[in-house]
Design a protein around this nucleic acid. Structure first.
Length: 606
RNA sequence: GGAGCCGUAGUGUAGCGGUUUAACAUGUCGGCCUGUCACGCCGAAGAUCGCGGGUUCAAAUCCCGUCGGCUCCGCCA
């Protein structure tokens, strides 16, 4: 029998598959969806019909006539309409693993609305399939329930954000996608102007300048859920286009923003996940975070804090430690529970990781029963050893790890070891949500490449008032009114109180090495706006994709974006980017110096 | 720009110099089957081992290059 594709006409969907239950017994329903699976018993055919809401079993009996005939033709992922009656399943055939497992739909009419090719992978959760294939066939990947759940979670999250902010008097305002390239920050994506030969727009890295100008404009409370673009290399949690929740408020101070954001987070997590977040959220200063956790985005799901023994090893017999302290560095370490039992190989791996992240070496002491095993124990007196162990807080069965270096290196090495050990030793509950604020970031850091100071946050960040006197003396010691929100070791977002005073802004530019002319050239429109009555203001921006990633417990934001790019910045479904017709380039007054050679985006198979 | 891992029927894997006509599972196709739900049973088809070059009597297997995917460093105010 030739496959007959039929019209939807005359049929109206009455229910969704997943919402049917025993309460619907006896009703005539019309369902539309995809054939999830077909079980053909020769004289009886079962079809699991799937739509966005779930699955329901459809039974086709030979007595149903043409419906049975058509059920024989149907294959996986065919799009069909079924009209029939809901009935309780016969005694003993209910399926408790299926939400609709107590009932089934007895097909009276079956229409094949569209056939389908056999998909390259299963349309179900937990598939083990090459991600490239999923991206090539993203529309099939997105049919899988777990992906639909994430897309739905994302929608529910943005809806909750809008609800909350609307209730707090925020207005959502759109800002341009075609804007001006600005210095500082990431590499811009450029868009050539056809009407202005040789000139370019840039896609926004964030709406930063526009939202500040909206404050000058008297909007007072602005937010936007907005696409941002940064032409930098990709990571599991970084895409060239990503979505920010961007906010800005006038007439507020830091506390106002932190409090508001905490309530926002509590609201969103309650509404979407049903999770209660304890407020207020913990706060760490940047300095505390670096000292205790070795990073400015600490994972507070577990302790394993860094200790400092610099003052007790100053004059010790172990030259590596003593020299580090003498040169103004530090000796810090970790006290690893259960680590005394680590094998030689495990210690080598940790050492390797320490070296990879910048350490010159890793010293260790295993606090075994009644003895201390350590290659460096011999450099210490018995008393010195006791003091060291005591200061590290080491107890029997534990392993002490030491890094001696300058403060920056020691922090980053121990920070990465801490994370690795946390993972290895299962020191935390993966289900836990540990938020923390990190505040008081430095205003500036020195860039050896550019041989000048650069803004840690951005050039419009307000220095803390009590540090203003340091601006001229020790700029690197100036703290900023900048803050990050961190969740489980992931930077969710960051913001600052902005400079609204001209004199401070000028000081900032001069510290960054901009002459007044350069500042005018680069940010003139903003500076001009600031001359017309700028309210004190500040704001914050969140990476929505990362937030969804953590809420959905995924390892990459690619799973939280409907159509993401690969690590090399391409789209495997559309094969973007691509070459364009020579006429297009001509219109844009462009000539390329390169020609992409033998580009191939298929997965290698036809 | 750099480091590492991966690439074998549609899919997931095995094979890692020679008893291989490249194996297994699953999917696909055909037949049988009236209570299955990862249905079952029988049968069949399906792979230029990502691509190019080299070493060798002999390469899926070793080497080099290249393309693609992933992780990380640099980069990401």
């Amino acid at each position: 029998m030739d496959l007959v594709v039929e019209s939807i006409s005359g049929l109206h969907r009455t229910h969704c598959c997943g919402e049917l239950g025993t309460i619907d017994t006896g009703k005539e329903v019309t369902l539309m969806g995809w054939v999830h699976r077909r079980r053909d018993h020769g004289g009886l055919i079962f079809i699991d019909l799937r739509d966005r809401s779930g699955l329901v079993q459809v039974v086709c009996d030979p007595e149903a006539g043409t419906a049975f005939k058509k059920a024989e033709e149907v294959r996986n992922e065919y799009v069909v309409a079924v009209r029939g009656n809901v009935r309780l399943r016969p005694e003993g055939t209910a399926n408790p693993r299926l939400a609709t497992g107590d009932i089934e739909v007895e097909a009276r009419e079956l229409r094949i609305l569209n056939p389908a090719k056999t998909p390259p992978f299963y349309i179900e959760d937990d598939i083990a399939v090459d991600e490239a294939l999923r991206l090539r066939y993203r529309y099939l990947d997105l049919r899988r329930p777990e992906m639909q759940d994430i897309m739905h979670l994302r929608y529910r999250t943005t809806r909750a954000i809008r609800d909350f902010l609307d209730g707090r008097g925020f207005w959502e305002i759109e800002t341009p996608m075609l804007t001006r390239s600005t210095p500082e920050g990431a590499r811009d994506f450029l868009v050539p102007s056809r009407l202005r030969p040789g000139e370019f727009f840039a896609l926004p890295q964030s709406p930063q300048l526009f939202k500040q100008i909206l404050m000058v404009a008297g909007i007072e409370r602005y937010f936007q859920i907005v696409r941002c673009f940064r032409d930098e290399d990709l990571r599991a949690d970084r895409q060239p286009e990503f979505t920010q929740l961007d906010m800005e408020m006038s007439f507020i101070q830091r506390e106002d923003i932190l409090n508001l954001v905490e309530e926002l987070m509590a609201y969103v997590f309650r509404e979407t996940l049903g999770v209660e977040i304890d407020l207020p959220l913990p706060r760490l200063t940047y300095k505390e975070a670096i000292t205790r956790y070795g990073t400015d985005k600490p994972d507070l799901r577990f302790g394993l804090e860094i200790f400092d023994v610099s003052d007790v090893v100053g004059g010790c017999g172990f030259k590596v430690f003593a020299d580090a302290v003498a040169k103004g560095g530090v000796v810090r370490g970790l006290c690893v529970p259960g680590g005394a039992g680590f094998s030689r190989r495990e210690l080598d791996e940790l050492t390797q990781q320490a070296v990879t992240s910048g350490a010159k070496g890793l010293a260790w002491m295993a606090l075994a029963a009644g003895e201390i095993r350590s290659p460096i124990a011999k450099f210490f007196t018995g008393e010195g050893l006791q003091e060291l162990v005591a200061r590290a807080g080491g107890r029997e069965g534990e392993l002490l790890l030491f890094v001696a270096d300058n403060e920056t290196v020691a922090a980053s090495v121990l920070g990465s070891l801490r994370l690795e050990l946390g993972r290895r030793l299962h020191l935390y509950d993966p289900e836990q949500l540990a938020f923390t604020w990190v505040t008081d970031f430095p205003l500036l850091e020195y860039s050896p490449e550019e041989k000048r100071y650069v803004a840690v946050h951005h050039p419009f960040t307000m220095p803390m008032e009590e540090d203003w006197p340091l601006l001229d003396i020790e700029p690197l010691k100036v703290r900023a009114l900048a803050y990050d929100l961190v969740l489980n070791g992931v930077e969710l977002g960051g913001g600052s109180i902005r400079i609204h005073r001209r004199d401070i802004q000028e000081k900032m530019f001069s510290l960054l090495g901009f002459s007044p002319e350069e500042a005018q050239e680069k940010f003139g429109f903003l500076l001009e706006a600031f001359e017309y009555g700028t309210p004190p203001h500040g704001g914050i921006a969140f990476g929505l994709d990362r937030m969804i990633m953590l809420m959905a417990r995924r390892d990459t934001i690619r799973d939280c974006i409907a159509f993401p790019k690969t690590q090399s910045g391409t789209c495997l479904m559309t094969a973007a980017p691509s070459t364009v017709a020579p006429e297009q380039l001509l219109e844009l007054h462009l000539k390329t110096t390169a020609r992409p050679a033998g580009k191939q985006y298929s997965t290698g198979k036809a």
